[in-house]
């Protein structure tokens, strides 16, 4: 993927934004097109492939978040950068949750736009084509691992670090926020935390490896957690776990080759009244017959 072969789509309901992007990006040698709203963008992308999409959030009809959701589902390999005049914590958080690479606050200068574009392109390149289809053995260092995270998240993480930096004992809250944002704790994130908090990397790692909440492996799109509390155990949660392992073809702590599912066991969710319990993402399923374990998972295919 070279800069010249890369195709960018800028989506904004104001034509002046698209025009100025055109001047800057085309001037720098990028191939760029514009769309005056979410609907037009989707129509364009139905026909053609774009590698990177810059989108406004507040647009009539199909807004930015809706467009990002559509992209996530239908064009998961496309990189997304948001252009926004309203970088409120909530919208940024929502967009981060949907996996954007970065954001450009409006109004922006040509230098900022070029800088963000370069970073986004770099990010796309590090992931490489096919990076999404990592196999279950991704824990082995020989495999290509997404060992970085988007610049937008880095900026968010820095904010979190700055907030906690001078509060003693806040390593765990910082790591919790980092994992909440990224979904897991890549080595790069731990290094950033170590540097930012001025805590030795070894100590950061010692804390991460001690607590079961933290994970240094990426999770699948849907994380399946099987409760192994006593009440669930008594109601044969072990068999559910065995059936899921067999059905998905992965072990505990692993991710399916298509990265759709990851499987974890968890110590009591405190929902013993519903035992045995399986949680997929944020949905809780109770009173499961071990025989039907895979039926729950199939709903998320």
């Amino acid at each position: 993927m070279t800069e010249n072969g890369l195709k960018i789509l800028v989506v904004d309901d104001e034509s002046i934004v698209i025009r100025s992007c055109e001047i800057v990006l085309k001037g720098a040698g990028y191939h760029m097109e514009g769309a005056l709203g979410g609907r037009e963008a989707i129509l364009k992308m139905e026909k053609e492939r774009y590698d990177l999409v810059f989108t406004d959030l507040k647009m009539p009809e199909v807004d930015g978040i809706t467009l990002i959701r559509w992209l996530r589902n239908s064009r998961p390999d496309t990189g997304i950068v948001i252009l926004t005049g309203y970088p409120s914590q909530d919208t940024i958080k929502e967009a981060l949750g949907l996996g954007i690479i970065d954001y450009v606050p409006k109004p922006f200068t040509p230098a900022v736009l070029l800088d963000v574009t370069r970073r986004a392109v770099q990010w796309l390149e590090t992931r490489k084509p096919g990076a999404f289809a990592i196999s279950a053995e991704m824990s082995s260092p020989a495999e290509p691992v997404r060992d970085d995270f988007p610049p937008a998240m880095a900026a968010e993480l820095d904010k979190v670090i700055a907030h906690y930096k001078h509060i003693p004992g806040s390593l765990i809250p910082v790591l919790q926020r980092a994992q909440e944002m990224i979904g897991w704790l890549p080595v790069a994130a731990l290094k950033r935390v170590s540097k930012g908090m001025n805590i030795p990397a070894a100590e950061v790692h010692s804390v991460v490896s001690f607590y079961s909440f933290f994970t240094m492996k990426p999770r699948g799109d849907h994380n399946i957690r099987v409760c192994l509390g006593t009440a669930c155990y008594v109601k044969r949660a072990e068999e559910i776990l065995r059936n899921l392992k067999e059905g998905l073809g992965i072990g505990v702590g692993e991710v399916t080759p298509d990265r759709k599912f990851s499987l974890e066991e968890v110590r009591c969710l405190g929902a013993c009244g519903l035992a045995p319990v399986v949680v997929v993402d944020h949905d809780t399923f109770g009173g499961i017959d071990p025989k039907n374990s895979m039926e729950i998972v199939e709903k998320y295919r």
Partner: peptide, 8 residues
């Protein structure tokens, strides 16, 4: 930190 499995 109610950690006992089976207690809620």
């Amino acid at each position: 930190d109610e950690g006992d499995p089976g207690a809620f």
